[in-house]
Design a protein around this nucleic acid. Structure first.
Lengths: 229, 229
DNA sequence: TATTGTAGATATGTACTACATATTAAAATC
DNA sequence: GATTTTAATATGTAGTACATATCTACAATA
């Protein structure tokens, strides 16, 4: 049986073991963000390894955003940014089709699920913001401009959700969603009979119910949902 | 203005620059998963830096899962696992309250949004699986046992969604969700008037509509949704 | 001929040493 | 007492050396 992120101990390198030890050490000693940690040489000596190997293990923690080092000052625990690395790695060129399909669906899932947050946190101000975007859309000259405003509309919805993490997450998913949009041949909105426009969505957001808005959003995204089998 | 994951060039180290160069190099040369890449020394010499510094940059890529090295064999590009690092870093001890609240909400958002997938991909088999879990729940002796079966029920729903990535994502979110569950004082289900049980959810999944199921799910999770303001 | 054994080449992993450099703190100077 | 100098500090970078797992190719053996 093969588990993700786990490698057999027989072909673990010393640095792998150092990393594990450090992990235990940080947890057992209850190091928290802001706490400074012993210097490289001390850690290396305490573990009986070279500074070289210790530094490589520490580099891994730095890459994950669990520690930071300042030249000549030492190292401190940091609060990791859960989404940071995801951003680097979310590259359609590198991911397989199935994974991208999964993220494509996840984007749709979130778009539908976020509705509950929208109705708790919507405000007159934020609705006005949406209306301004729709107005610009009506006057858009080029396709590119329309696309940009479409993205802005949905991004604004994410902002209204009041959930900064979800908002960032959505931005990170965008390259994959875009890629899938171009790969799958998506029908244009005009071809869809009961398409719901941004304008209608706003109206529901203002005066309608959560359920109505969700159904509206489903229809708004119908071309994408048709891809799901 | 401070952007996430970007540091001013004046306090970039050499390794930071090497990392950027490598990034460009991999993209420009169109290296894809499976391709082997030049050896450390060649890269170091080509870039005019020491093997030490080059190795540190390469360690970052290895940590992100973009390349793998086999001792004495060389290095190859790999398909990154987008969620792998997230798992390491998703630690309630290290994250701030706001971020955890965000992920708490994200979990709820996904639980609501996933319903569309469920109705596309449900099967008699999978529904039977849910029924078995509910049966076990009825006979559960301890609270711990009940909790485990509750998790199993929802995990099974994620499986039914047919989206492996979302399923994994949910598992990664669990520690944070659990933490929040204990932090916020959540009412018990029994105190809730129109609580919808697992059993009822199954019935709707079998014979009901997407909208009915989603409303059922909302009521099932009502104690959590009450926390959102 | 087919198999096994051996030798050499290979590239990463680990260790050690040395020094550069930015920052802090202590000491010296006025 | 305020300013300048000096010294100590810990990470960043460089260079060298060697260990080691794996592959290749060739040699030895049956």
């Amino acid at each position: 049986m093969k588990l993700q992120g786990i490698k057999p101990i027989e072909n673990m390198t010393q640095v792998d073991r150092i990393e594990m030890n450090l992990h235990d050490y940080f947890r057992n000693e209850n190091f928290l963000p802001g706490d400074s940690i012993p210097k490289e040489i001390e850690l290396a000596e305490a573990m009986g390894v070279s500074r070289t190997a210790m530094r490589e293990a520490l580099t891994r923690f730095k890459t994950l955003g669990l520690i930071e080092s300042k030249k000549n000052r030492g190292m401190v625990m940091t609060e990791p940014d859960v989404l940071q690395n995801m951003n680097v790695v979310m590259n359609p060129r590198l991911l397989n089709q199935e994974t991208m399909q999964d993220f494509f669906e996840l984007r749709l899932v979130i778009e539908m699920g976020i509705v509950d947050l929208l109705f708790v946190r919507k405000s007159d101000d934020s609705i006005k913001k949406l209306e301004e975007i729709v107005e610009k859309e009506a006057n858009a000259k080029t396709i590119n401009e329309s696309l940009k405003l479409d993205i802005e509309f949905h991004s604004t919805l994410y902002k209204i959700s009041g959930n900064h993490t979800i908002e960032r997450f959505q931005r990170i998913l965008m390259p994959v969603f875009d890629y899938m949009k171009n790969t799958l041949h998506i029908r244009s909105q005009e071809q869809t009979a009961d398409y719901v426009s941004h304008k209608v969505l706003i109206k529901i957001l203002k005066d309608g119910t959560v359920e109505e808005f969700r159904q509206g959003m489903y229809k708004h995204l119908i071309q994408y949902f048709e891809q799901i089998k």
